[in-house]
Design a protein around this nucleic acid. Structure first.
Lengths: 341, 341
DNA sequence: CTGAAAGCGCTTACAG
DNA sequence: CTGAAAGCGCTTACAG
């Protein structure tokens, strides 16, 4: 149906040079004389030439792209990380493609394995620590599969380079803040317990509580980082005989679901209960009450992931390349927490 | 640095057949005898063979992928559309790659043009109606560039197939609801006026107001769909001498920023002012007060986009393929609107 | 059903 | 600085 596709050959004929020269003029302009460069560029222009990536990729044995596995695009937590990734990728002259691993279509190793191929990606960044084990254990063949780097989450510990936030310290900051406010009965809504983030934050929280010999054991409830699970936690909280006066939620999204349901049921935040989240997503400062939370440096997380990946791609990774890079966190105090009265 | 890459040739040698047979056994199993199929599969297994996509793409002149241009991944509005796209793409055996057009790295035609190549994508879905004009006008060459379909937004009208929500009707439903509640002084926070969504919704709102000969002209304020612009609108609203008793915001995100700032300043929603949003994002029902809004069928939007695209790819598009497909909307009444007292 | 061979569109030593 | 030629790893008519 369409006119014949224009190749480097057509450009060469038009410009009266060889295909080799066209290739050079286009990809390494300095390697040809200004005159030939000019005529090639003009020829490319007037023939409407567009490079065929597949051919180049095949020949160069690389794709010029990095793919990112994202667990849940609906979670606003990821968007800033992606900005960081894109900025850094652009600096390294790589395209970035996102793959939604949370999608039911991508729920198995087979579906994802196709993306984990050097013909698609020069490297892959995985933001999802809960990929099917099979994928990285059996499908991934070192040396032929593209380099992998984990961001935020991580899964086979220390098998790949990774950047992450200091989750334990974040949890500690949250609990310390609550204790400093005089709270003695502190609850914790965790993420899914098979997730590293959840267990790290739980460990951090428990350690902080233990350190103060606060009034433990407190109420604990397992969520899944979703808003819905936050509201379920609230439902359970409401049935408690003695309700904690403060609750640390392992994600902002859950904290919002939690507060929302509480307020709906006449429980005031922070008058009746203080709430702390984790992540500092955009809505956190806009929810009423504005959410006290743990801020993660998300752009930086994304950039670091790309840097680690580029090192792996270029083969100049440090000896301890697999030692996790841990980024600092900050407590952001807003209106959802208050000293006990 | 790594062991030699394993090709179809190695598999062929291992299985004692030709490369042609390996190729057939792998991609069209029914075209070889069960015996050869078995031995080829085993050979592939034990050699650890992995197909080289670039080579296949080059040979087949297609990529097996569709790429999606997303304007702003941080806007939760898009996640459900993407689910719909991914589900439909999987049914059509296509991979999907996302490209963030909002990223500063992708702000120009050059950066995006590289993705708009048949070597990357068999087709592209554009969810961003505000792409640089140059891209689709000059860089896009019909017949050689991959088919394009617009979802949600659209830009050169009727030049490409598109699916969209009935924006005008959505706005009308919002206004009619407010009028039905007795409001006579109704304000409108629009999206950016260079955006089709904004102008459509504005037109729908104005038409509905005019039809009722309600107390026009009402206050109008231009935002950019972001939460921050919603709070700015609120700041402006607060300075008004006679404040509208109801405000229709062209997106939920703006509505939330708007309400948040109002409440912070002691203005009650819905007691002092009713607010209606547009989109029905996840947080809408959880914000306090829960937001009355216009629901869009986002999964369906995504699926329809893929269907249109597949028609274009397979060359069986209808004659009126470029006539926009318009999806219905629904008014969801929650707690942010109330009859005037 | 299977094999030999051509070719997809590039890039890059190798000569000159 | 430029050209002729090989080759990246597949798939697919064309014979048999």
């Amino acid at each position: 149906m369409s006119r014949k596709t224009i190749t480097i050959k057509d450009v060469a004929r038009f410009a009266g040079v060889s295909t080799a020269t066209v290739s050079r003029a286009l990809s390494r302009p300095s390697s040809v004389t200004p005159a030939t460069r000019k005529s090639v560029l003009e020829a490319a222009q007037s023939t409407g030439y567009q490079m065929n990536q597949a051919a180049r990729n095949l020949r160069k044995q690389q794709s010029g792209a990095i793919v990112v596995f994202v667990p849940d695009l609906s979670n606003p937590f990821f968007s800033h990380i992606l900005s960081g990734i894109e900025a850094a990728a652009a600096r390294n002259d790589k395209s970035v493609f996102l793959v939604n691993t949370y999608s039911p279509q991508n729920d198995n190793a087979d579906a994802l394995a196709r993306y984990l191929s050097s013909s698609w990606a020069d490297g892959v960044i995985i933001l999802d620590g809960s990929l099917p084990k099979d994928l990285l254990q059996n499908r991934y063949v070192p040396g032929v599969s593209p380099p992998v780097v984990f961001g935020c989450e991580w899964s086979p510990p220390d098998k790949f380079p990774s950047v992450r936030t200091d989750n334990r310290r974040g949890a500690k900051l949250a609990i310390d803040h609550l204790i400093g406010l005089g709270h003695k009965n502190i609850g914790h809504v965790t993420g899914p317990l098979w997730n590293v983030l959840s267990t790290e934050r739980l460990a951090g929280a428990n350690a902080a509580l233990a350190a103060h010999a606060a009034g433990l054991p407190a109420w604990q409830c397992e969520g899944d980082f979703s808003m819905a699970s936050g509201t379920q936690a609230a439902t359970q909280y409401l049935t408690l005989d003695t309700r904690p006066t403060a609750v640390f939620c392992a994600s902002d999204t859950m904290a919002i679901g939690f507060m929302s349901e509480l307020i709906k049921n006449g429980v005031s935040v922070p008058d009746d209960v203080s709430v702390v989240g984790f992540d500092d997503i955009d809505i956190a400062e806009r929810f009423i009450p504005a959410l006290t939370t743990i801020h993660q440096h998300r752009e930086h997380l994304g950039e670091s992931a790309v840097n680690l990946l580029m090192n792996a791609i270029n083969g100049n990774a440090a000896d301890d390349a697999n030692a996790p890079l841990v980024l600092p966190v900050e407590l952001i105090i807003r209106d959802s927490t208050k000293a006990i009265s």
